[in-house]
Write a protein that binds this DNA or RNA. Sequence first.
DNA 1: CCATCTTTGTGCACGCGTTCACAAAGACAT
DNA 2: ATGTCTTTGTGAACGCGTGCACAAAGATGG
Lengths: 251, 251
Amino acid sequence: MATGRTHRPATRSRGIPEATVARLPLYLRALTALSERSVPTVSSEELAAAAGVNSAKLRKDFSYLGSYGTRGVGYDVEYLVYQISRELGLTQDWPVVIVGIGNLGAALANYGGFASRGFRVAALIDADPAMAGKPVAGIPVQHTDDLEKIIKDNGVSIGVIATPAGAAQQVCDRLVGAGVTSILNFAPTVLSVPDGVDVRKVDLSIELQILAFHEQRKAGEETAGEEAVTASVPKNTPKGPDGDVPVVMPA
Amino acid sequence: MATGRTHRPATRSRGIPEATVARLPLYLRALTALSERSVPTVSSEELAAAAGVNSAKLRKDFSYLGSYGTRGVGYDVEYLVYQISRELGLTQDWPVVIVGIGNLGAALANYGGFASRGFRVAALIDADPAMAGKPVAGIPVQHTDDLEKIIKDNGVSIGVIATPAGAAQQVCDRLVGAGVTSILNFAPTVLSVPDGVDVRKVDLSIELQILAFHEQRKAGEETAGEEAVTASVPKNTPKGPDGDVPVVMPA
DNA sequence: CCATCTTTGTGCACGCGTTCACAAAGACAT
DNA sequence: ATGTCTTTGTGAACGCGTGCACAAAGATGG
Ligand SMILES: NC(=O)c1ccc[n+]([C@@H]2O[C@H](COP(=O)([O-])OP(=O)(O)OC[C@H]3O[C@@H](n4cnc5c(N)ncnc54)[C@H](O)[C@@H]3O)[C@@H](O)[C@H]2O)c1
Ligand SMILES: NC(=O)c1ccc[n+]([C@@H]2O[C@H](COP(=O)([O-])OP(=O)(O)OC[C@H]3O[C@@H](n4cnc5c(N)ncnc54)[C@H](O)[C@@H]3O)[C@@H](O)[C@H]2O)c1
């Protein structure tokens, strides 16, 4: 019997829930602010308030990293900053490439918050020959032809896609082919990638649509059902799943 | 305005789970693409593949909207586009203001995908007097002094914050005070808002940190399992130029 | 050294979201 | 009409995430 090795895959071995991972950067930001004010320790209650989460949730999150708190006192700010940074992999340098230097790509390149946490813009890549060599945010834009070489020369494993939607999958494939295993996608497309590659997407349009949904719901509540644009939607009756078929199908 | 009806049982009254709402825009996008190709009907299996989700999940999502499919055939594309659009509130016009016309704000203003789905940039607002009157994306930037008037004159209920983090809460308060009830926040800050106001955040830094976490985990797995759990400086940094991390264990 | 007080760490219950699996519904052919 | 075949709609089981509530740990003061 191997020592300590469980039968479970790595996801369980490291044991940090995805939801917790997503909150760690939030805690880190709050802790960094405290650190800059030279606050030595902080209670779960205070830190939770600053991060906008439940204090029990925060304590449970930290418990996954180990027990770094002191009962009756709280958590040591500096120590926690270090532990979370290490857990997130921010103690090392992450070269990043941005592909598609248009409106958004240029804004990202100019974004100061990038470098603040170990992320370094290693290269800017665009398909437009007219942009080649032109500096954006002090970094010369390089042509897509050299994408593979750029990735390999710089040891890049994280890529940001800010091209039009139509080019995103193709760019993605090339990034992955060159060795990139993490992608942040700003293009409004579903990217398909092989196992082992992580994709996260930032989709402005989706966010707005979600807001619009709730906005409409709020407005609808105030004016109590005034719509009736086309036959009222069948209230999803919990007990009568079928039966009503009045909704007309427009051929 | 909200007349004391701050209670919030509506989430269940309308009955559409939040997770489903978040996927509707995804389905809508895939359906729109099918519609443009004049595809008349689509099965849950096909549509699910296009949207990158499980087909059973998709069917259950649609079941919350009512039963719009035909067994043995699938879903009518045009009809579904309409139903989802209506459910999301996209059949009406949503005037939006963007506050903070810097790198990111300007990119957002120039973003074509904005207008495509009922969202209309009603105004651009910035605190910099030098920007006042200057057109960005064909729209003249207005000064923050007039924020309240702009919101009210245009009937704006959705606001986008793209100011520096330090100004975000203040801007948020003014937006809410003027009647905005949905906010999309790009600044890396936790915004606090009264009940009845929805906030969604887009945080590039957090996304990158989450990717870095998984990236580090992948790298750690490759180099075969032992890894100093506590203390000790991270060692899997072949070319790490950081080399600092002087933080030491307290106590 | 003991009492008290603060705050952590976590057991537990609950609700939401996901997925499987299948009966029923309907299209289509004969 | 009847049978076959496709695909929906959903019951049910399961796992994850959340938050309450509390015992234990440790600091602090006498
Ligand atoms: N601008 C925004 O605020 C915003 C917001 C949300 C999403 N988006 C999305 O981000 C993407 C970029 O938006 P944008 O406004 O910057 O567009 P843009 O047209 O200004 O820029 C796109 C850039 O990508 C380059 N490009 C095109 N094909 C390429 C390829 N195959 N390889 C490399 N580069 C290529 C173009 O040369 C151009 O410079 C789009 O998919 C858009 O939908 C933009
Ligand atoms: N640029 C990016 O790619 C990017 C990415 C992620 C997040 N962000 C965040 O988005 C925000 C904006 O980033 P940016 O790069 O555009 O910054 P920026 O400095 O280029 O622009 C900020 C703009 O906000 C204006 N402003 C400042 N205070 C204001 C106030 N009180 N009211 C109205 N306007 C005000 C400034 O005049 C300026 O025009 C920041 O919080 C940043 O952290 C930016």
